[in-house]
Amino acid sequence: MLETPVLSVKDLVVRYGEACPKCAESLEKNRCSVCGCVWAANNLSLEVYPGEVLGIVGESGSGKTTLMRTLYFDIAPTAGSAVLHDYKDASQSIWEASTAEQRMIKNNIMGMVYQNPVMGLRMNYSAASNIAEKIIAAGSRNAAQMTARATELLEAVEILTSRMSEAPKNFSGGMQQRVQISKALANNPSLLLLDEVTTGLDLSVQAKVLDLIRKIKAQYGISILLVSHDLAVIRMLADRTIVMLDGKIVESGLTDQILEDPQHAYTQQLVHSLI
């Protein structure tokens, strides 16, 4: 069964601080006890396939957000490559692309939803303008089309169109997350990066966001990389799951297998902590 991955990451290293010759044998968790540098991502490799949700779980500081933000060009990798099927037929790592090309990838091929909506939205612009900004960045200048697209997307995420002219700073956390999702979808990306999108939301709003992600997957066939602390969210949405610890992938597999038959000591600890 031959399938071409939408995204393929190889040997990603993200290090904060200069390395020393003793780093390799002096890592305590992900920090070198000699020079103090932090190996936030340490040789990560993964693949995301068309239409699948790949879940990423792990404790705080395990490198999940570093991975997402490196993929979205917010952080520069120390080493490694990432190829996207929709960028030059996966012939060049996105991290070798020019700044202009990276902008194009962010606007047309990938969408990102941050845990903190402040990172992904312009809080003082209207919800519709946030979406329009993304569409303009992709090259469109047709105001009527932009309004129509913003209306369609906000309706899809259940934001009343009567509120599309309001700034997200006036919205609740759940509404801000949904505006972020609609903004990320503005240009029909093939890959959506979702970083803890349900954290901090109350249960009913969380259910709305989960339902929305499920619909996005079913309707648009978009591949999703989903970071979450919440194993229930992962169980419901992810086809496959990766478990991270101290900047490394310690286990990966089918989501139900990871949750029902975890192999690694940390994964067992994580699953046994489920309430």
């Binding site: 969380q206 259910a207 709305k208 989960l210 339902d211 499920r214 079913a218 169980r235 419901m236």
Partner: peptide, 18 residues
């Protein structure tokens, strides 16, 4: 039974076919 939140009985059965 393992059902997504806000998914009705009919939608749950439909999801297998979709």
């Amino acid at each position: 039974l393992n059902v997504m939140p806000r998914t009705t009985a009919k939608e749950h059965v439909m999801s297998a076919l979709i």
